[in-house]
Structures are given as C-alpha cells and as structure tokens.
Design a protein around this nucleic acid. Structure first.
Lengths: 354, 354
DNA sequence: CTCGGGTACTGTATCGATTCAGAGCCGTTA
DNA sequence: TAACGGCTCTGAATCGATACAGTACCCGAG
C-alpha cells in the first residue's frame, strides 16, 4: 500500500491540497507546516507527487519523443546523430523535460502506430526521417507538434523544421573540388537506393532519387559539375549499405581499383569519408594528393583525420529542434529555421596530379 | 477542445466503458459496434486512449528510465554502451515499453533528485554507475526496481544486477600476454583517478582504487602478473581522461616514448586500445610484433583492427537488464545474473621480440 | 466598530482513462 | 416454465494529483 498525498494529509489532519502545495507551491503555506509535511512524508516513505498523476492533471507529459528504427546502433554510431541528440537533450533539460526513445520496427505498421499512440510525450522529433514518413500522420492526429530536420518543402505548415541548405552545401564542396581541376569524380552516399547494396549504381537523374538528404546532396554536386561545364553522365555514384566506416571503405573500392581511378571522392557524410580514407590507406594512396576526399558534417574525427568537409551546427540543430518543440511558436516564419553551413578545407583535398 | 472517450461515447449514445473496450478489449463488445466506434473516433479526430490517463489508471508507466550524465556524447560514443542500450531497447520493445533518457548533471543534487522523482517510469537502469551512486536511494524510496551492471557485492539485495567476472576476464588477458613472455607491461584505463588527467599514475595498491570497473580490471592484470612471479611495482599504470580513442592515444604516449618502452599494453576498453593502435601507427610501430595490445569488450571495430580482446555479450547484457527490470523476479538467485566472457586472440598480440 | 486586504488553508471539480460488479436479454436445458 | 449461463453493455468507483473558488482569521486604517 503506497503512500499518496492523501495518506500524508490524513496523517497530519490537513487537506490534500495543502500537501500538494508543500511540494509544488511552497509560497502557499507557512514554512513550519511545510516542514512538518515534508518530514511526515519522509517518515511514511512518500517520495513526492506521482509523476503520472501530475502529468495527467497538468496536461503536460514532460518528455519529448524521439523516433528510432529498431536498431539503435545504427542511429547512435553516427557522431552527427549523437551531437544532434546532445543538443536536443540540453534544450529539453533546461525545461525539465526528458527524452523518450520510441523504437519503431518499420515492418509492422500496426505495432508502430501503437507505439506512437501510447507514447506519453509533448511532441516528437523525427530525424533521419527517411523511414518515418508514415508516422507523421499518426502524430498529427494526436495533435502533437513534430519537428523534422529534413525537407522543408514536403513538411506541411503544421510541422516544425530545422534544416540546412543541403544542396548549396555540397554545391560548395563540388566547386572546391572542381576548382582543383578534378574531373573524374565519384560521389558516395548511403540511401541512394532503397535496397541494401554496396557499390556503384547508375543514376540517370539524381533529381528523381527517393531519399531527401542523399538526393539533395548529390544534386548539389551535380550543380557544381554542370556549372563547371561537366556532364552528369561522367559522374560515378556509389551506394553504401549503411552509414559506417566499413561500408564506406567497401563502397569506394570500385572507384579506386578500376583502371580509370577517380581522382576525387565526394562522400555525403564524414563517416563514409573516413571509410574512404581507410580504403586509401590500405592501398597506399595519399589523401589530398593521389585522391582528394571530402565529407559532410564536420564531426570531431574529421579534424583529426584532416578531412575537408562541410561544417553543420549539429548540436545547435538539436537544441533548436528542442526549443521549437517545446515552444511551438505560432508565427509561421519562426516555425522553420535554416542554419548556416561552411566549407572547412583541410589536407584531404588538393590539386589534381598531372 | 480535444476529443476524449466521453466525446465518442456521447456521439454514439453508448457508455464510456464500451468505447474504452473498443480499444483495449475488443472481445468485450460486438464487432459491429466496435466498428462504428472506431469509425466515429476517426471522424472526430480521436487518436486513441490518452497514454497518461491510461498509465495512471493501470499503474504502469510503460517506460524504463536510463540515467545519463549531462553529456550524451560521452555515453553514446562508446560502441559498448550503444550495444548495451540496443539490447535494453529490444527487451523493452517486446513488452511495449520505451526508454526514457534521464539526464543528470551530478553537480546539482537537488535538480537530479527532482529529475529522478519526476520520471514517469517503471524502473531504472543504471549503467556506468560510477557517478550515480547517490541516485539509488532516491529510486529505492520511490519503490521502483533498479538494475546495475556493476559491483554485485555493493548492490543491496533489492537491486538487480547483470554483471561479468571483470577480474577473471582481465586475468585471462594478463595470462595470455605474459604467456608470450612480456614483462614490461602497461595497463591503460579511464577512471583510475577521480580527476581528469591523461598520463602515468602511481598506484601503490590497485585494490584500493575507487571505481569498480577500473579497479577490478586492473586487479585482474595484477593477479596474472603475481601468478607469473612478477611484482606489481613493475607495472606501469596509465590514466586516460576519457574513454575515447584520442585520450587512449595520448595516455599511452608516455609508455611508448620512454627509453624502456613497454612491450605490451593492456587497455581496459577496446576504444582505448584502438587509440593505442593509432599511437603505434603514428610511430611506425607494428602491433603484435613491436608492441602487443589488448582491449576489452570486443566491439565491432576490434575485429576489423585485429585486436586481441575479451568478448563480453554486451547486447545480451542490455537485454537481460531489461528483462530483469520488467519481470523483477522475487527469487534472490535470479536477481543477479553473471554472464560469461571469452578471450578472443587476434593479431595485435604476439611473442615478445628478443 | 467596520471595512479592506492579505495570509493560510479547505473542499470540490477535474484531468482521461480502466475496472468491475451487475443489468438486460436471449437461448438452452431439465 | 424456471433456472442457468453466456453475451453485451452500463454505471460508478478509482487511479493520484492540481487548480480554483471560497472560508476563516488577523491586522491595520478609517
């Protein structure tokens, strides 16, 4: 038989409200009585107001939902994702809110819908939204705010968005690499295809690709290429089956081992680019001289590896996502934040060798 | 004005209970009525029972709390931790439970206590318990189950524990390395000291170290050394300021650069060991020949790097932790699970060079 | 002596569901 | 035909707190 507010109230002969006030609004009662209440609570082993009951009454769950695919490793092994989450957590923490990880299988829509409907949260954060498109309807039906970090165009006006100019950022990368005279380029990404596959793929028109981030980033490279007078059909596109170092190394093998070796590899994430550097190392090729390599995100390891990349403010992105979710501004202009990116040039890129 | 069970009930002229049953106990009403109810709910934009209200009534929060230090990066950058969490999440998922990340600052006990008291969860998982000792009392006062992955001796009988034989595992590592004839050993760990510091430390008696995991693992190496007729005073102990590759590389520098170079480095985690391999690479030293290196955990990267290490079933550990928490067996014998470990020998260890 | 105003506390409605005893109703069986 | 059981559905109690209107009392000003 657990103690409740009533237990304490009865014990002291005061009203339940007063005990509640002792915890939540200390200014509403005399310090002496409050002291007695707290002491009695301690004695009866009462640990303070029940969080669930409080949530129900207050109409606030005190948590933000974060959607995940079943395999957390996948989500957490990317330092970018971890930084984003760190930012999200810091915003949440400031407002006494925690994060609820909601695992989705993506195979069982029924179960996923149930998980979304049963989550006691005040809003959802959907990042890496690729697989979660279907979840948005369910969330909207619950009338909860959602923030995504993707396609601003596709997100309805009711959505909150924190994004970057994906296409412009890789355009800058492309300009940088092309400026060094490289013409035999390869672009490396995960989610080029729907299937799990590692290696070269033929992409007639990158604008038609399904997944937003890979599409935009690849198109940015295309923009640069076309502006430099190149032709898309000369571009080699590589798909990695996951956003991991090993998948990156495996996927780039084709571009490095064939006769007409690519002289520059534009990877769509730093993790993949690090895999490319691994692949170069095992072949005795020098980054920035024999082959130029670029990444995206500017994770901490990128600096150590001397990787030329695009810096995006990952932690800020998470923090702002959290703030949007918790404040849900009405003003449509404030519901969509675009953050700046910058090109970070390091040693992994250099002029094409004669 | 949001729709509730009552709204639907009034609309159809049935009782609230019946609408509730339509969602939670479909066998309690006729299929036709259920269909009409679901349809009306759909029409009125009702997304199903409110999770908070349901939790209150059922007395089950449907979430497990996971304690974190403020900085998620720290926690998530260790693949071991991510694997553990993955296991925890899978156990939770099976029982329709999600994970609530509860950020603790460790600097502000008041705020931390509040966070613990306000978390709507059915139990807590405390891993990397080093800093969280103080939280256990608060959790116990709430009457919630806790599972830890550490010191079985120190945990009270009310605690749930999933552990491994830390000391025995590093004893095996030590035996392996000593068997190759190595005598100039260094052991590398984080949390040897309370302070943030990277480099050699003098440890008169490892049994006195404060943090459980580093103490036990270092003592295991000591056991092996003593059994081989060596003396603890010959052992070099290195502290890394964090469990990261860079900290590992920095901490091991002393052992590699001094005149009497260590011939074997026993690292207490794979991440640190990978850092040691990095340090060897920058010095042109060959792992397994010039210097033997061992790790602990057997994270996926360890296999790629050819690292000799101890495999512990990280994912199982998480899964079992979740199961203990959700089932809370009464039988004291079942409240404490010890999982097996095994030595995995790869190329990073070899005979001492003459 | 009354009135205004503040402080300290009480009582009740409410948040949105679940649960469980029981009420009708209908068909079966002795 | 009465007793019984099964199927649907209802009504009221309950989970544990918070919010708000209201009461009692005290103090100083008019």
């Amino acid at each position: 038989m657990k103690a409740t507010l009533q237990t304490i109230a009865d014990e002291l002969g005061v009203s339940r409200s007063t005990v509640s006030n002792a915890y939540s609004r200390p200014d509403q009662l005399s310090p002496e009585l409050r002291e007695r209440i707290l002491e009695t609570a301690q004695r009866l082993g009462y640990a303070g107001p029940n969080p669930t009951a409080r949530s129900l009454r207050r109409g606030r769950a005190g948590a933000l939902g974060v959607l995940f695919t079943g395999n957390l490793s996948h989500a957490f092994n990317d330092p970018y994702a971890v930084q984003f989450l760190t930012g999200l957590a810091s915003a949440a923490e400031q407002r006494q809110t925690s994060l609820l990880l909601v695992p989705l299988s993506l195979d069982e829509p029924e179960a996923d819908a149930a998980a979304l409907n049963e989550a006691a949260v005040d809003g959802f954060c959907v990042y890496c939204a690729s697989g979660f498109r279907g979840s948005l309807d369910i969330i909207h039906r619950r009338g909860l705010p959602v923030v995504t970090t993707e396609n601003p165009a596709e997100a309805g006006p009711e959505s909150l968005v924190v994004s970057i100019d994906e296409r412009g950022a890789t355009r800058a990368i492309g300009d940088h690499v092309l400026g060094f005279g490289h013409r035999r380029l390869a672009v490396l990404s995960d989610y080029v295809l729907t299937e799990r596959y590692t290696g070269p793929v033929s992409v007639a028109d990158p604008e038609q690709l399904q997944y937003y981030i890979s599409r935009e980033r690849i198109c940015g490279v295309k923009d640069a290429l076309v502006a430099a007078g190149g032709s898309w059909s000369d571009m080699l596109v590589l798909n990695a089956e996951a956003n991991s170092r090993t998948a990156g190394a495996a996927a780039v093998a084709y571009a490095l081992d064939r006769a007409e070796r690519a002289t520059a590899i534009v990877a769509c994430t730093d993790v993949l680019a690090l895999g490319v550097l691994d692949a170069l190392a095992t072949r005795g090729l020098r980054p920035g001289r024999d082959v130029s390599v670029t990444g995206f995100d500017d994770i901490p390891e990128a600096a150590d590896a001397g990787l030329t990349t695009v810096r995006q403010p990952s932690t800020d992105k998470g923090r702002i996502a959290g703030e949007l979710l918790l404040d849900s501004p009405e003003d449509p202009a404030r519901r969509h934040v675009v953050l700046p990116t910058s090109l970070v040039v390091r040693a992994s890129t250099g002029p094409v060798q004669p």
